[in-house]
Design a protein around this nucleic acid. Structure first.
Lengths: 219, 219
DNA sequence: CTACTCCCGACTGTAGACAGTCGACTTATG
DNA sequence: CATAAGTCGACTGTCTACAGTCGGGAGTAG
């Protein structure tokens, strides 16, 4: 039954909380729930067909991810980003990813690392002709992989906490501006820098990449 | 009534969720809830005298802060840190705070910044002879101030998300080891570096500070 | 004595209901 | 007519109750 085990390994049993979390995150970062919009718990729980208690747990997490901002009396609304905040988000992102790049440079065996990164770039290549959403996804996947490969769970977690804000930044700036940051070549430069093992170079490459990206978004 | 307004500005109206959050965070970072300990919702809600729903919202946030880890079927337990994780946490912390230092160096008017930092150092001085807890608090307050002064809310938020893990690291290593990192002089060096406006120097000073701190903790 | 099965207790996932509070609209009053 | 008081509706904060699921111990067959 070797061939049968694969589809039998765990049925999709995500809790309603997690499902609600994904659904809301997508709705916000896609702009379906526009920035500034007031979120009413009773309304949302009815739309999602879940109880308020379950919903509130999900909202709490989105709040901490920076996708929602709390007003008086616990009123939640979709966060609105201005240009300074986008630059700030990208500063932090740059700091995290430059740490990732530096860390990867110091790894003894970088072969697997660059292999994985090249695969991620291939995925970007494949998505290059496709939808804007697909290109964004493959781009973010590349950068998430960068963090994951370090083996530093805290780093990965911090980056993922920022991911929602990054997506909002792209949406806020407009998807067209966002994808202009996703040139495959620029990402190859990053991998090449890591491949040399030169931590300072890798850091510099990432910082420049992020600087350009932020500049493009707020332009 | 000028003298009377101060105590009348807003009655302490923290929600039960926030109170529970503080109480649990303190209990965990103080070691009252030892690492690995299983947290049972019904038990905790009875101890804190709040409903499970309210408690769950607080637990969810602690989970995201990295103070709790989730087992199978949503069982939560107090996270246990090994030495690698402590180093990882301090790597991320170093990346964030070096960004803070760099940012502060680029500020046009650094006078207020260094003033605030000197005040924070004075507080450390005052606490130097006191309890271990007091010294830790004033140390963390210094570093939090460093992030706050940048005006980068995302940076501050990311740092605060890490704060719980930092406190756990100190507790895990033992408070005595922790306070050995809190020499007032070493912090004066940081402020001095920022004062020069030399971003590279400030960054280097912070990175070394964190490197030493992490090394002390896992020693 | 071993292994397998069944049942019970414990705990989390989820739902629904009640209570308190604030804003907006209405009404009374000078 | 303008201002202040009163009233209504909406929404969040909180609690209690119910359902589902897993782990472990008792019981039984081989």
């Amino acid at each position: 039954m070797a061939g049968l085990t694969a589809p039998l390994l765990g049925l999709e049993k995500k809790s309603l909380r997690e499902q609600a979390l994904s659904a809301l995150r997508t709705a916000i970062t896609s702009g379906e729930l526009e920035p500034g919009r007031h979120l009413v718990e009773t309304e949302l729980s009815e739309m999602l067909q879940i109880s308020r208690g379950t919903l509130r747990e999900a909202l709490r997490q989105l709040e901490q991810e920076g996708l929602l901002s709390a007003g008086p009396r616990g009123r939640l609304s979709v966060r609105h980003l201005d240009e300074k905040e986008i630059r700030d988000i990208y500063s932090v992102r740059a700091a995290l990813e430059s740490l990732a790049a530096r860390t990867l440079c110091e790894l003894p065996d970088r072969q697997q690392v660059t292999d994985s990164l090249h695969k991620a770039i291939d995925a970007m290549d494949a998505a290059a002709g496709g939808s804007l959403e697909g290109r964004i996804e493959s781009d973010l996947e590349f950068h998430r992989t960068l963090c994951r490969l370090t083996g530093n769970e805290t780093l990965l977690h911090s980056w993922e906490s920022l991911e929602g804000s990054i997506r909002m930044s792209i949406m806020f700036a407009g998807l067209e501006k966002g994808v202009s940051n996703m040139s495959v070549d620029r990402h190859k430069d990053i991998v090449a820098a890591i491949d040399t093992g030169d931590a300072a170079l890798a850091r510099k490459t990432i910082l420049e990449h992020m600087d350009t990206a932020a500049a493009n978004l707020v332009a």
